[in-house]
């Protein structure tokens, strides 16, 4: 019933608009064509200018109120570089945007049809064409030069002291693994993947023994973090908006991203004036029906807090030795001995 009424009202409005249109048309055809064109161009030209002014005010107002408020403060070293580039690009494109749009609306209004005026026959001017080919080329070259300079820095090799973390996407969660005491991630083999060992970690690899899994990503401030990114099933994307970090997680193709966080969670809570605030890891590549719900909390803490947290973590291998032994009979004895010192 409700729908029927809405549709009925909608149709009624359309019919009224159509009738008005017909009446206006009937009245207007009786007049001289040139005069009619001039009048229409007058009023429509004015309305077009007015709509331009309304849009200009809307855009100026929203930019003024929202620009600072919306952008999350960059919480990493390279995030600041990107922010600077965004600002430069905003100024350059903003100036061009204002000039071209203002000219468009102004010309459309100023040169609207007049019976006794004739347009200027001005088919080309090659000098002007060259000028406005060369200037944009130069400006764009500068923008891309600034951008690529930072681009290669962002994708440079991670510093050797970087903390090694592995984040693997699956429908619809993230699995986080740390390199442990030796800061080296144990090797993986996809053919070893089972329900218990979905990452397919090679337990034979000595480096896997001290690796641990974590429910949260905990990282120390001002220390480089090297994230090894992967996926089990479909493509996901590792996305930390505040840190300006984004990298796809592709099954079968390892990817990586390193960054240096500069603002701790506590500091960000103060900046945002929100005691509840937490950094969050999100998925940014459509991965199925739960794509919108792949959250993982990220905590940036001080060096001391990180050390304390790190000391509490227990090796995944040691915690699950019983299960692993049952599964993989080929484990050598010294590995088992190392894992179960009490049995000696």
């Amino acid at each position: 019933m409700q729908i029927l009424l809405i549709i009925l009202a909608f149709v009624l409005v359309l019919v009224v608009i159509l009738q008005v249109g017909k009446v206006v048309e009937l009245v207007s055809v009786m007049r001289d064509e040139d005069e009619r064109t001039e009048d229409t161009s007058n009023s429509v030209g004015f309305l077009f200018l007015l709509s331009g002014i309304i849009l200009g005010v809307f855009i100026a107002y929203t930019t003024y109120t929202e620009y600072g408020k919306f952008l999350p403060v960059p919480a990493s070293e390279h995030g600041v570089w990107i922010q600077d580039l965004v600002d430069i690009t905003l100024y350059i494109t903003g100036i061009v945007f204002i000039i071209t749009n203002v000219l468009l609306f102004y010309f459309a209004y100023k040169y609207r049809y007049k019976r006794n005026r004739k347009a200027l026959y001005y088919p080309y001017n090659n000098r002007i064409e060259i000028l406005w080919t060369v200037i944009p080329t130069l400006v764009l070259t500068i923008i891309i030069g600034l951008g690529l300079n930072k681009w290669f820095k962002i994708f440079s090799a991670a510093p050797t002291e970087a903390i090694q973390i592995e984040v693997t996407g699956k429908q619809f969660a993230w699995v986080v693994r740390y390199g442990g005491k030796d800061n080296e991630l144990g090797k993986r083999d996809f053919t070893l993947s089972t329900v218990e060992n979905e990452l397919g970690v090679r337990w034979k690899d000595k480096q896997s023994k001290d690796d641990f899994l974590s429910d949260e990503i905990v990282i120390p401030v001002n220390t480089p973090v090297h994230v090894n990114i992967g996926a089990l099933d479909v493509i996901h994307s590792f996305y930390l908006p505040e840190f300006r970090v984004m990298m796809d997680a592709v099954p079968g193709i390892p990817t990586k991203f390193w960054f240096r966080p500069t603002i701790t969670t506590e500091q960000m809570r103060e900046i945002k004036k929100n005691p509840e605030f937490d950094y969050e890891l999100a998925c940014n590549q459509l991965c199925g029906t739960g794509h919108w719900n792949m959250k993982k909390t990220v905590k940036v803490v001080t060096e001391a807090e990180y050390k304390a947290w790190f000391a509490e973590q227990k090796s995944y291998y040691k915690q699950n030795i019983a299960k692993i032994q049952g599964e993989d009979a080929s484990l050598d004895n010294d590995v088992i001995a190392e894992a179960n010192p009490s049995k000696n």
């Binding site: 064109t37 161009s41 071209t100 468009l104 010309f107 040169y111 080329t137």
Partner: peptide, 26 residues
């Protein structure tokens, strides 16, 4: 990608100059 903005901007400037000092029937 940034270079492809050049022909696009040439087109915009040319459209603006097309209506400049025209006698525009709206």
């Amino acid at each position: 990608t940034l270079l492809i903005a050049v022909p696009s901007s040439v087109k915009v400037f040319n459209w603006l100059t097309t209506i400049w000092r025209g006698n525009i029937k709206m």
